[in-house]
Design a binder for these strands. Sequence first.
DNA 1: CCCTCGAGTGCTAACGTTAACAATGTTCGA
DNA 2: TCGAACATTGTTAACGTTAGCACTCGAGGG
Lengths: 362, 362
Amino acid sequence: MSPPTDPAPTPGEGTRTPVLADVAELAGVSQQTVSRVVRGSGSVARRTRERVEQAIAELGYQPNAAARALVTRRSHRIGVVAASTSLYGPALTLVGVQEAARAAGYSVTVVMVSDLLPTTVAEAFQELRGQTVDGAIAVVPEDASQAAVAATDAAFPCVLAPGLDGAGVPDAYWSEVAAARAVTEHLLALGHRTVHHVGGPVDWAESRARSTGWRTALVEARRVVPRPVRGDWTAASGYRAGREVLAAGATAIFCGNDHMAIGVVRAATEGGLSVPGDVSVVGFDDVPEAAYLNPPLTTVRQDFTEIGRRCVRVLLGRLNRRVVEPGALTPELVVRQSTGPAPVAAVTAAAGTDAPRSPVAG
Amino acid sequence: MSPPTDPAPTPGEGTRTPVLADVAELAGVSQQTVSRVVRGSGSVARRTRERVEQAIAELGYQPNAAARALVTRRSHRIGVVAASTSLYGPALTLVGVQEAARAAGYSVTVVMVSDLLPTTVAEAFQELRGQTVDGAIAVVPEDASQAAVAATDAAFPCVLAPGLDGAGVPDAYWSEVAAARAVTEHLLALGHRTVHHVGGPVDWAESRARSTGWRTALVEARRVVPRPVRGDWTAASGYRAGREVLAAGATAIFCGNDHMAIGVVRAATEGGLSVPGDVSVVGFDDVPEAAYLNPPLTTVRQDFTEIGRRCVRVLLGRLNRRVVEPGALTPELVVRQSTGPAPVAAVTAAAGTDAPRSPVAG
DNA sequence: CCCTCGAGTGCTAACGTTAACAATGTTCGA
DNA sequence: TCGAACATTGTTAACGTTAGCACTCGAGGG
């Protein structure tokens, strides 16, 4: 509506966004005093402060972040490099990051990478460094980000989300391993001879942790370890993997995430198999829908938001030259109705019966 | 590992991040020339440019965004105010925004709001304005953001995601209405007397659009319009709403999104009703899992990513004083197996039969 | 041969803020 | 009553970049 008149910098005219000097003039003090009031540092007489505050309110003054960042060398912004923020886990982690960052007075710049090539990820980090963020968090599979982070300036602190740190195998990893173990043991306890595995992409640390937990439990129980089939986190890939694993005669399947589990259940159903009558399926993540699926999905609950919060805590700590212990997370097995006792006869024949309460097969 | 030695600004010592002046000195030219090379503007002799470029590479120079923003008054960053980025639609829209922004050389700062109070949203915009972003996109229900956007400085361009603009009812709205109509008509064509509705929160424009389309179709076909039940997009709320609607004798249910549809299907299944034998259920969004649910869900496919891309296009256009037509999106009805002919006897009795191919009831 | 033009380059002054220091009063103990 | 310590305020110089102008060359037209 308004004509595109070029707002020439005619002083004292028009509605130029107010700056420190304007406030100072209106309040009748020096810029420095206004600055002190704005930052809440240094000592300012009560009367003066009130006058300044009123001037600020009157003018609607808001400090210029760029100017401040230039002189302070602190932008109060952190960067996040994320793979696909549409994936359930990363999306929630991002929420946690946002939450914690905001609470600490930081804003968040997100850079999404479309693929996981180390080059791409490294570029993303470089981009953030150029954007004068104070530090960065990688919500990207470790394999891709680790090298990129290592190549980064030491003055540019980075935190890896899944592992919470590049140095050493972190707690988060082991809790996932433990959870996957618990899943496998749950299935074994139900009488299944062994447990098949539909895993996520191998280049995700989460995938490997879950696979490791599964394998360990199997080996410890002296069971056959079937060759795991890998998907890409999607239901579609789960469906394909499911058909494959089912063809191999699986009666219990542990999936790397809930969405793939959905695909596996679908594959079973289409194959005339009932879940959990003929085959038990377990997911991972506990997406909000898991409890309402057909059948309600047994899965592992994971507090992704908390992971995000912790990343921020660690990063902000590092910015202030403090070391913050990330602490352990405890994923929790949630048993619902997609797991049940092993079928009496473990054949791939398509028997449509749902065999209630069949005794555990030794 | 490295001791926390305070990097004092001793000139020419240590590994201070290189600035324009350093490059200029190394290349034996003035800062201005380096600046011209970096920005690719102005005329620079070929030989000089090469020398400068080599110096840049040698020093690993990267321009300081804060300084540049300070003098240019352009940060090449846009802000996004989003409700819950963990919701499927907003998450994908954010992906689209990222994609398009990046391609145009912009980075993205996200501010998440936890609730939809106009105050909260307005605060989020203020925060962005202070962060010197060039403009903002609201991926927030219009009701909450419209006022906030209106209250914003004219010099701070904003775009509303769902509507693509605050002025006038946008195309996106009407395409959703049309899609909801198509859903309802599909259900009616299958012989259902009427269609029940489990809608999303009323303060979302998307919700209202879908409800409107549903209602219109019903009225036009001169059918009874049942009272819609509202959920909050989650499967849990869908489940509750589903029980309610089912108790009212629904045989066809149109849900505001796929997750609520999952809850509704669950409610039906638990009530001993088969889907689509006894009751048909339709979702909205076409989440990637929809095709693999039990039964595969009939729904409406929606290109959220494209919405995000368009927002950026419109915003960037406005930044350059150009008006960009957002253009229409065409959501598409995807018929799968959760919808079928109306049952012969529309009673709430729990008959476990799946009544295949029952003829359409006039 | 002079004048103009344009390409190529450099100098200087911003942009809006904060840090460091200097300069006021003011108070309090001796 | 004097000086030290303190509270309060102002002055000056950065921070790293770009815009505007001025300058120096050669080339080409009259």
